[in-house]
Structures are given as C-alpha cells and as structure tokens.
Design a protein around this nucleic acid. Structure first.
Lengths: 146, 146
DNA sequence: GGTTTTTACGGGCTGCGTAACGATT
DNA sequence: AATCGTTACGCAGCCCGTAAAAACC
C-alpha cells in the first residue's frame, strides 16, 4: 500500500466509479490505473469495488473503509506537503542591512516587518548610520544584500 | 515523497540520529537508507538533518516539521492497515448449517453468536431437523460446511 | 582500528504506455 | 458503433544490496 495508490483509488470513487474518467483526471493511462487497483486488491487480499456488467458499480464494505481512511490520510499528506514547500521556499542565511536614519524611519515600519514575518529563518542585522559611514563600512555593491 | 520514506526518516530520528542503527531496525542496508534520505532532501529541496563531523546531529527546522507530520501520518496509516486486515480476514459467503435439535440447543447459544459476531459478512442459514432428515438433504460431506 | 556516512555500480522489480482483446450498452 | 475494463508485452526508472572509499572517533 502506498500513498499514490490511495490517490488513484479515491480518484476512481470521485469519478463516479468510472476508471476512464479517473485516469484522465490523474493524467494516467487507463490500463495503468486498472492494473494498479487490481494489484492493490490482490496484495491486500480484498475486493474494493463491486463489479458487474464489466463495470465498477460501487464500493464494497472494505472499499468504504479504505475510502474514509484514504481521504483522511491524503488530506494530512497534503497539509504536510504544503508545510514542507513553505520550508523549502524560505530563504535562509544572514543579511546585513545598513540604512541611513532618514531612510530607515520610512522603510523599517513598512517593509522590514513583512520581510521578517515571511522569512523567520533569516538573521537580519540592521545597522543604522549616516550615508557616509555606511559607504566606508561596506565593501559590497549593494547596501541591502551583503 | 512516499510513506516508506516517512518511515525511514522517523526511524533515524528514533535511533538517535544514527543511520546504522536505524537501518538495522528497518532491516535495510545502511547505504540504501542514506541514499533514500539524500534523495528525499534533494527532491523536496530541503535539509532535514544538521550534519557535522560526518554524522547526523539533530533535526533542522524543516526536519522538525516533517517529523511531526510523519508521525501523525504513519499513525493513521497503520490504523488503516489494521482496519483493512480485519476486512480481509473476514470470511465471506454463505454457510448452510444443519443441526439436529438436541445439538443445536447446546451449540447455538455458545458457539453461533461468536461466529456471527466475528464474521458479520457470512450469511448463516441454520436448518433445524432430525438427523435422518439432514442426511437426506445434504449431499456434502460435512453438515457444517456446505 | 572501529564507527559512521557517502559514493559507485549492477541487478531485479515495478509502474507505466501502447496495443490488443473482451464485455456492455 | 461507442464506451469501459482487463490482459499482454516491453521498456525505463527506482530501490536495494554489495563493495569501496572517506571522514571522524
């Protein structure tokens, strides 16, 4: 059993037990889907769908059990994925910022809190000094990214 | 990302960040484990462990996030597996039972309710008749499984 | 030298697509 | 005829184990 299989299974249910429809939604060939489900049923030794007239008709009892669990797990799985993507997109490292007092009085209250909130992993080190002072201190091209 | 990978990851954390130890617990070669984690980190584009001195030392922030989610998902996954195994072990079909009155008076109250409770999917059809009558009706060897 | 992790390499398994078939409407 | 599902087949990708190396104790 595998997350992907849970996705496939749920997709079929939510495509009104129509494998062809589900396979399109999954961007997967229909035989691949059929085979996956078949393998699943054999491996777990249970029947998930009621089949008749060569079509899927409904969920069996076991299918019902699987469906509710699958929905739950998928939901949590996607929550995890979301959190992880957020982590991976978060910038890390240290940024030294030098701003003259006149500028910081405008920039700080508006921009900095947002940057800090969106990137808690960044260590901001703000140095407040006159323009002359900053120029001397900084050997890097930009006063904002050093 | 995959359930199996979550298992692997959690195993490492719970083996005190010792891959060799974890690999034994997982019945998996240590290089395979190392590679899986490495692939995971690259694929998801995040670092899960703090590494230094050629060892794993601790979880990173991202690792923390993954760990809590993973524990949760694994727990639910195992709950599902348990439920499914129960489904698959349940016997299905129909059983015709023929018992003479003298026997049924003993068997029914003691055994049958248990059988019914443990196997709700079975359709029990109990026929009560004298021993002679049953023998005539049944062409099958056992009076209990036909 | 003993642990621990990473890298390299090769083989077996599996998941998938294409194709063909079978069943139903 | 059109739709739906299963079966057959071949290939690419991966997962893993063995082996070897690198880093650290």
């Amino acid at each position: 059993m595998d997350i992907k299989q849970l996705y496939y299974f749920v997709a079929i249910v939510e495509a009104d037990f129509n494998m062809s429809k589900a396979s399109k939604a999954l961007h997967l060939s229909q035989p691949a889907l059929s085979q996956t489900i078949s393998t699943m049923e054999k491996t777990e030794n249970l029947q998930l769908f009621e089949r008749s007239h060569g079509r899927l008709q409904n969920l069996t009892g076991a299918g019902d059990v699987l469906y509710s669990h699958a929905k739950d797990i998928i939901e949590r799985f996607e929550a995890m994925t979301e959190d992880l993507q957020e982590e991976s997109s978060q910038l890390k490292g240290n940024i030294r910022i030098g701003i003259p007092p006149v500028v910081i009085s405008i920039v700080f209250p508006e921009i900095l809190p947002i940057m800090l909130a969106e990137n808690p992993k960044i260590g901001f080190k703000v140095k407040e000094a006159g323009a002359m002072e900053l120029k001397k201190d900084s050997a890097t091209p930009s006063p904002f990214l050093g």
